[in-house]
């Protein structure tokens, strides 16, 4: 088992004819993902990597029974692409695109209320259910089927930690890049709720960073409700205040949202925090060995 995606996921790629969209369609197929359709308005009827391209997501879903969408379109069109996917009735929308204005996420959140659809991202590197499917841009070769769940606000830092986990001999159930923006569709806690019910996941690694208080809320949740072991990593211990560190959400405002504060709450709630990515993998290995 796994969460969010598996070998039965039927994926539609929005922006499939673009440079990133076409390249990663090939990579996702290579990993074993069932990419059943692509969408680029005006390019309907073409094929990319053997995948049929449609003009609208509704048509793609109707013809191919796609149940998940991944978005690779420029920032200006990404908000529209998210709404189009929601309206087409897919159950999962993974927004790899970055640069969406924050207020659009406020509106999308309200629009999603009561609908049977989950948004991951924006600014998400994607999701991998090891050995089953990958949606997004995470490099498939570093994953190995196993029992560790990984949730992260980052991209390459996630690869680093996953790679360390794999090198200890362990593997992953599902790895989710939730995105580095201030407001995102799926948060750490949403993923933990799913991991709690997934029998194949024995431990979870939460990779956080400076900015906001999602990590603090997550720690309180873990302490109260989550029964499996959780390990953590927090990036940005050396980050100065009031400077955006790349990700739109990675900013210490005044004195709140610091790494020190987050590490403290993690530890207080029983989440062991690694000083380095290698430490985290070692902690998980020691626990599950």
């Amino acid at each position: 088992m796994s969460i969010l995606i598996n070998k039965d996921t039927r994926l539609v790629v929005q922006g499939i004819t673009g440079r990133d969209g076409s390249f990663h369609t090939g990579q996702m197929i290579k990993y074993g993902t069932k990419v059943v359709a692509g969408v680029t308005p005006g390019k309907g009827g073409k094929e990319v990597e053997g995948v049929p391209v449609f003009n609208t997501v509704v048509e793609a879903v109707k013809k191919t029974e796609a149940n998940a969408a991944v978005i690779f379109v420029p920032a200006k069109f990404a908000t529209g692409a998210v709404y189009e996917a929601i309206d087409a009735g897919v159950k999962l929308v993974v927004c790899v695109a970055e640069g969406l204005p924050t207020i659009e996420l406020v509106k999308i959140t309200a629009y999603l209320k009561g609908k049977d659809c989950r948004l991951v991202g924006p600014n998400s590197p994607g999701i991998v259910s090891a050995g089953e499917a990958k949606v997004g841009i995470l490099p498939g070769n570093i994953f190995k089927k196993g029992s560790v769940g990984v949730i992260s606000r980052s991209g390459t830092l996630t690869y680093e930690i996953v790679d360390h986990i794999t090198k200890t001999g362990l593997g992953q159930s599902t790895c989710i890049g939730i995105g580095g923006d201030p407001i995102i569709g799926t948060k750490f806690i949403d993923c933990l709720e799913l991991f709690a019910k997934d029998d194949d996941t024995e431990a979870v690694v939460v990779v956080g960073e400076i900015g906001g208080r999602d990590e603090q809320d997550t720690a309180e949740y873990v302490k109260k409700y989550f029964k499996k072991p959780v390990f953590g990593f927090i990036a940005g211990k050396t980050a100065p205040a009031d400077k955006r560190m790349g990700h739109a959400g990675a900013i210490i405002s005044g004195t709140s949202g610091t790494a020190a504060e987050k590490v403290k709450v993690f530890e207080a709630c029983g989440i062991k925090v690694g000083e380095t990515p290698a430490d985290v993998a070692r902690f998980v290995k020691d626990k599950l060995a």
């Binding site: 992260s152 606000r153 980052s154 991209g155 390459t156 830092l157 996630t158 690869y159 680093e160 580095g180 990779v207 960073e209 400076i210 990593f233 990036a235 940005g236 211990k237 050396t238 980050a239 560190m245 790349g246 990700h247 990675a250 790494a259 000083e275 380095t276 990515p277």
Partner: peptide, 17 residues
């Protein structure tokens, strides 16, 4: 010099560590 914001922060932290 790093690719990705999370890894870039983690790299600074590691140097300090």
């Amino acid at each position: 010099v790093v690719n990705g914001a999370g890894l870039a922060m983690a790299t600074m932290d590691l140097v300090k560590h």
